[in-house]
Design a protein around this nucleic acid. Sequence first.
DNA 1: CTCTTATTGCAATTCAGTCTTAATAGGAAT
DNA 2: ATTCCTATTAAGACTGAATTGCAATAAGAG
Lengths: 142, 142
Amino acid sequence: MTTTDAFESYLAKSNLRVTKERQQLYDGVRAQKGHFTVDTLVHRLKESGYAISRDTVYRNLPLLLEAGVVRQSFRAGRETIYEVDEGKPHHDHLLCSQCGKVEEFVDPKIEALQEDVARQFEFELQHHCHQLVGICKKCRKS
Amino acid sequence: MTTTDAFESYLAKSNLRVTKERQQLYDGVRAQKGHFTVDTLVHRLKESGYAISRDTVYRNLPLLLEAGVVRQSFRAGRETIYEVDEGKPHHDHLLCSQCGKVEEFVDPKIEALQEDVARQFEFELQHHCHQLVGICKKCRKS
DNA sequence: CTCTTATTGCAATTCAGTCTTAATAGGAAT
DNA sequence: ATTCCTATTAAGACTGAATTGCAATAAGAG
Ligand SMILES: [Mn+2]
Ligand SMILES: [Mn+2]
Ligand SMILES: [Zn+2]
Ligand SMILES: [Zn+2]
């Protein structure tokens, strides 16, 4: 009983091969809770017995993005932070500059106003990146 | 007649030395129009006869930011984009993913809603970074 | 099973940004 | 003006995320 998962469908559609590494990568990525970097992902994959090289992860990231499996979440320093995309609705982020805490938010009014701005400048909006940076309640008390 | 400029005041206040490099950096930075990267800044400084090393620029950037001379504008790929801060009011950016065109916008309603979101999560908002990415009118026609 | 070629792992490379260090120069004290 | 302390500089080595070249491997069509 082969699992016909979303990623395999995408690979088939794109005439790409279904390799052991890609299957394990798909499984491993979907097991991630919350936000993660490529390096932490590689480590966790190794811990799960999936020995996939860092390069293979990087090379397959564009596919995972395109297939809607992961999403580029935001950037912390020089690193790109990812998160699982499948099923999870769009949202933006609120970061604590002291402890690094990450909160997620969606504001339909902001979303709509962004569309208005794009229309005003005659841009066809593709995506946006919106981060609020501040100090969380806990950090403010110290 | 020594020019008592904003940066020199900041340096004095912070017990930092006024060097030839810092003066030239201040002049050079304020001469920049629009958005720029550290490397283009270094090149332009060199062209203006100011031979300031890349390292000195990087070492003084935190001071220029703190003094309110420059502002971290946004990130394009791996590079950080800067722009002159003095006198220029806050705004966010709209980028064309095809040609790299940059537009600036401010939406008071979005600004206010951001404060609401921060309040809701009990964050004290420090700053935010908001970029809209899309395709500009010109690029859509090709 | 055979053969073509996409995919992999490894090592080398890029690139923005940082760090080390020896030499230089700001500027306070004399 | 001269001395002296130390902040600051330039050059080059270094870092860490991400990319690329290449030889070996394996997917999967025939
Ligand atoms: Mn998220
Ligand atoms: Mn701007
Ligand atoms: Zn915090
Ligand atoms: Zn364009």
